[in-house]
Amino acid sequence: MKHLKKIMLLIAVLGVSACTDPGRFGPGAGGAGAGAGAGLGGAASDPRSPEYFRQTVGDRVHFAVDQSTLSPEARATLDGQAQWLLDNPEYSAIIEGHADERGTREYNLALGARRAAAVKEYLVARGVAGTRLSTVSYGKERPIAICSEESCYAQNRRAVTVITAGGGV
């Protein structure tokens, strides 16, 4: 039954998303941008839904300039993420690391990788199996806020935990 659910989820998602984003729920930055992203994530009122994770648990943490250190606020968010992932073992997650536009493309890719890894390490330390978590860096390629001011940069320096189908191996 569990397998069937997993397969159906995969089919549903693959049917509508780009081939590069298998099984993602919600607007991970790998997708088309900052759309509402509901629908496939289930009802936001259902605590077991990826949409609940996104809206209520909080799917992202932010970083200071050129840093990958987790702030107390980020740790609190990640504690919630870890608990949700422990409660919902049928899901995995891709952690996306991002940077603001004030850096070169390649350095920002490496910086985003650091940020994603910092989140993964924290979640693993909180008991989430590392096999359920993968990381990817988008560097400065996928900003969610597009002004060239600190207010936007602060939003873009982020790591987003994107829930995917499947409980890992």
């Binding site: 390649e106 890719l109 990788a113 650091r114 910092a118 390490e121 990381t135 860096s137």
Partner: peptide, 25 residues
């Protein structure tokens, strides 16, 4: 892993690249 920022050697036989493993590049 992630790989990026590649470049050829002058003889074209070798490629240098940057590889991120566990957040370290």
């Amino acid at each position: 892993t992630m790989s990026f920022a590649p470049r050829f050697s002058p003889d074209g036989r070798t490629v240098l690249l940057s590889l991120s493993v566990g957040g370290n590049t």
